[in-house]
Simulated scan of single mutants.
Amino acid sequence: MEKIGFIGAGSMAEAIIAGLIKDGIFQPEQVIVANRSNSKRLEELSTKYGIKTTQNKKELAEESSIIVLAMKPKDVKAGTDGIQGEIDQKLIVSVLAGISIDTMKRIFGNQAAIIRAMPNTSATIAKSATAIAASENVTMNQIKKCQTLFEAIGICKLVDESQLDAVTGLSGSGPAYVYFLAEAMEKAASEMGLDSDVAKELIAQTLLGASEMIASSDKSPSQLRKEVSSPNGTTEAGIKVLQEKGVKDALISCVKRSCERSNEIKTEFQTALISSNS
């Protein structure tokens, strides 16, 4: 019986586990979770999902054919020490931001089958936009299996690893940009005297509806915007203010800077790992 093991028991690990069990991709008895010291958290997950938990990551690695690294990135070395000898013919899936496949190879060896995944926090409601990239030793069957895992919590796209920094800046950090926009809309609503609960519902539904329109329409966001903007109307008046304030350029710079920071973090982790091994 194939098993999947999670090293790390945080919110992302739980979101994936919940999706896998809900979709019937894995049964509870096929899921194992380990973390370093928080036995209360492991007990909580075991009770909620009926899964096996352990603080022995070597035991987890021995039993699992898929090993998901879901600890904090700074804990990657401590979280993987002792399991290097247990990964032969197994798939390693990393959801650790900023940890490159090359860095993973330094930990597990050049022959390891490694997939990097970049989900986002909307995984907790099964609406993640996830991108994955694979090392050369990953088989097509393993890629398809990994895509199935992440499709349980949203959508999943295969990209080259060189594109993952861009994915991080776009969809990895993207929910925060939308929340930032919602914050501004809430403040405007308050200043105009709208009830806060009413405003929140209206904003949420507006963002949800616009997102569904983008997803379901073959029209570009630019076209959809123009269709809402009647000449000399209310929407056009608002859009002109955004243009005058340079909001589009600011958002473009925001995504690009997030992408750059992802690359910086990747380099920092790789340098630190090399230094610790020298």
Results as ranks from 00 to 15, higher is better:
135 S>K: 06
151 E>F: 00
185 M>T: 10
180 F>C: 14
162 S>R: 14
137 N>L: 04
166 A>M: 06
177 Y>E: 07
169 G>W: 04
173 S>C: 15
139 T>N: 10
134 A>P: 09
131 A>V: 14
130 T>Q: 12
167 V>P: 08
149 L>E: 13
130 T>K: 07
145 K>L: 15
121 T>H: 04
153 I>A: 08
190 S>N: 05
194 L>K: 03
178 V>H: 07
115 I>Q: 05
115 I>W: 02
120 N>Y: 08
147 Q>K: 15
123 A>K: 12
150 F>V: 09
189 A>E: 08
138 V>Y: 08
137 N>M: 09
171 S>I: 01
184 A>G: 12
177 Y>R: 10
119 P>D: 02
189 A>T: 08
174 G>V: 03
169 G>M: 06
161 E>S: 07
127 K>R: 15
174 G>W: 04
173 S>P: 13
174 G>H: 03
123 A>I: 10
149 L>A: 11
155 I>H: 03
161 E>A: 02
181 L>E: 04
148 T>G: 11
135 S>V: 07
193 G>Q: 06
154 G>V: 01
140 M>D: 13
146 C>H: 12
122 S>D: 05
132 I>C: 12
177 Y>C: 12
173 S>Y: 11
155 I>E: 07
192 M>I: 01
178 V>A: 12
170 L>R: 03
183 E>S: 09
136 E>V: 07
149 L>C: 15
176 A>L: 13
119 P>C: 05
167 V>C: 05
136 E>L: 05
129 A>P: 02
137 N>V: 01
122 S>W: 00
150 F>Y: 14
166 A>L: 02
118 M>E: 05
134 A>G: 07
149 L>N: 11
143 I>Y: 03
163 Q>M: 10
140 M>N: 15
185 M>P: 14
139 T>Y: 10
145 K>Q: 15
191 E>G: 00
188 A>M: 10
168 T>E: 01
179 Y>L: 12
191 E>C: 00
165 D>P: 10
138 V>G: 12
175 P>T: 02
169 G>I: 04
141 N>E: 14
163 Q>D: 03
154 G>M: 02
166 A>D: 01
189 A>L: 11
167 V>I: 12
121 T>A: 06
